[in-house]
Design a protein around this nucleic acid. Structure first.
Length: 272
DNA sequence: AAGAAATACAACCGCCGATTG
DNA sequence: CCAATCGGCGGTTGTATTTCT
């Protein structure tokens, strides 16, 4: 079969995007909508590969994208989801409104792995990590139906994510146009405050900027969670925690309760 | 103050599954 | 059913920036 490269590299720009390019891309998508990535650069007058446009839009220009300032809540959530899902960054990102897979992936690789290791915690996901992408699965008739299933599933996921976005965005103006580096350890984007979108969705308290008080606050992102987690057994993940703990259990990120993880994993598999 | 090393993260690459004709 | 194409994902790289010596 083979696949031609997504675009001819000849004459196409690469590397960091300029403000002008960002504006062009944003305007074009606002007028014409997303999609048709291959033809988009040509239509929009951009000397970029379609993939590059998509990536730029998805990760930085799309309304509702939050940058930097990953809160403790979000960090906990990432860790738990990673434990459960492994390197399924897009799935993890889907549970964190305004966060992109790329950002989470970077954050994991640069911050969390180190942090977890320093805490003596194995950053590897749960042993029942979701199945690896299968190599060349048999494409038989059954594939058609399963394909449709998974497709539907994806659409559902997108709806959820999109709903979440809708709840969090409409702040296009906040999309940073230039990257901002500030002294470590706290990286603050002056152009983007997370307090408007994310925090308003949590229990109403920002735990990311509150020092000790923040540590006391147990809140969660009220996004559409995997439905199974909300079913009868509300105790999933509440190992050692009260009902007020969040869904996977604050303070027991790496619970030794393997049965619980097995259960969760099985249900998630069924979902897929 | 300057250079080296480390860090952070934007962007690219290649692959895969889904879709289409 | 097959081949071509597209969209999307995860791994990796390149480089700007910060920190260290």
């Amino acid at each position: 079969m083979g696949r031609s490269p997504c675009c001819s590299k000849v004459g196409l720009r690469r590397g960091p995007w300029s403000t002008k390019e960002d504006t062009t891309l944003t305007n074009f998508i606002q007028q014409n909508g997303e999609g048709q990535w291959r033809s988009l650069p040509k239509n929009a007058g951009l000397l970029r590969c379609g993939k590059s446009c998509r990536l730029r839009w998805m990760n930085y220009l799309r309304p509702g994208i939050k940058r930097g300032n990953i809160s403790q809540d979000e960090e906990d959530l990432i860790v738990r989801l990673h434990r459960l899902l492994g390197n399924r960054w897009s799935l993890i990102a889907g549970r964190l409104p305004g966060r992109t897979d790329n950002e989470i992936k970077n954050y994991w690789n640069t911050h969390l792995i180190k942090k977890l290791k320093e805490s003596g915690i194995n950053p590897k996901p749960h042993k029942h990590n979701l199945p690896k992408k299968k190599k060349k699965q048999k494409k038989v008739a059954a594939a058609t139906t399963t394909a449709k299933k998974t497709s539907t599933k994806k659409i559902e996921e997108k709806k959820l994510i999109s709903n979440n976005d809708n709840n969090n965005n409409n702040n296009n103006d906040d999309v940073p146009k230039t990257k901002v580096y500030l002294p470590k350890p706290i990286r603050v984007s002056s152009a983007f405050s997370r307090t408007n979108s994310y925090d308003s969705l949590t229990t109403g308290t920002s735990s990311s900027e509150g020092g000790e008080a923040a540590a006391e606050v147990v809140s969660y992102v009220p996004v559409a969670w995997l439905p199974e987690f909300e079913l009868e057994d509300a105790n999933y993940g509440l190992v050692g925690g009260g009902a007020e703990d969040d869904f996977l259990g604050v303070g027991c990120i790496f619970s030794s309760d393997e049965n619980m993880w097995d259960k969760v994993y099985d249900e998630y598999l069924q979902l897929l």
